[in-house]
């Protein structure tokens, strides 16, 4: 009896935790391998709701319409003038804000409308670049307006919603996309 109780007292009553680290390592490596840290970033777009009828654009004044055509050879035609993508942003900013009050540019930013049309054979890369420049033009304008009004740069996350709304009411982004024409479709 005495012998038994002695052995009980001697027994190490802690669980051996040295393998815990190995188990945790195993799990860690499993998660490292099976998971991906992909930061999904991109250009956010709001598509127009679907309707069977083509929108009527005949009542728009030509001076307010900024038409951008991208053909199947990835060339740009802006208001019937060929243009390179590099000049697009500056030109669009000038068109929308019309700082010198030109007769053929938008009456005021609220009336400006951008019309984007492409062929089915247009490269997606080119299309996105053009879209990026047009969005960039508006971002530049919003930034400018925000700096002037509130003294802070325009930022989707940091600027209060009311401020953003005020700026967007002043310079709304109106970008209409026409159905692509069927040129240059891949067979």
């Amino acid at each position: 009896m005495a012998n038994k109780s002695k052995s009980k007292g001697r027994a190490n009553n802690e669980i051996n935790a040295s393998s815990m680290a190995d188990i945790a390592f195993l799990l860690l490596i499993f998660f490292l391998v099976t998971t991906t840290i992909v930061e999904d970033k991109g250009i956010t777009v709001k598509l127009p709701p679907w309707s069977e009828e083509e929108p009527d654009i005949t009542q728009l004044k030509t001076r307010n319409v900024y038409s951008v055509l991208v053909n199947a050879q990835n060339q740009l035609l802006v208001r019937n003038q060929p243009m390179s993508i590099r000049d697009l942003r500056k030109n669009a900013v000038e068109f929308i804000s019309n700082p010198y009050g030109r007769e053929d540019y938008a009456e005021k930013p609220t009336k400006a409308i951008i019309m984007l049309k492409n062929d089915r054979g247009t490269n997606y890369k080119t299309y996105l670049e053009v879209y990026n420049e047009l969005k960039g033009a508006y971002n530049d304008l919003w930034n400018e307006a925000s700096m002037k009004k509130y003294g802070v740069p325009y930022d989707e996350d940091k600027l209060p919603l009311a401020y953003r709304k005020a700026i967007k009411a002043e310079i709304p982004m109106v970008l209409s996309e026409a159905e692509p024409t069927a040129f240059g479709e891949e067979k």
Binding site: A72, N118, D119, R120, G121, T122, N123, Y124, K125, Y127, L128, E179, P180, A182, G184, E185, E186
Partner: peptide
């Protein structure tokens, strides 16, 4: 992919 045409995207 950047190298596909707009047809399928449309």
């Amino acid at each position: 992919d950047g190298n596909v045409t707009m047809g399928i995207v449309a």
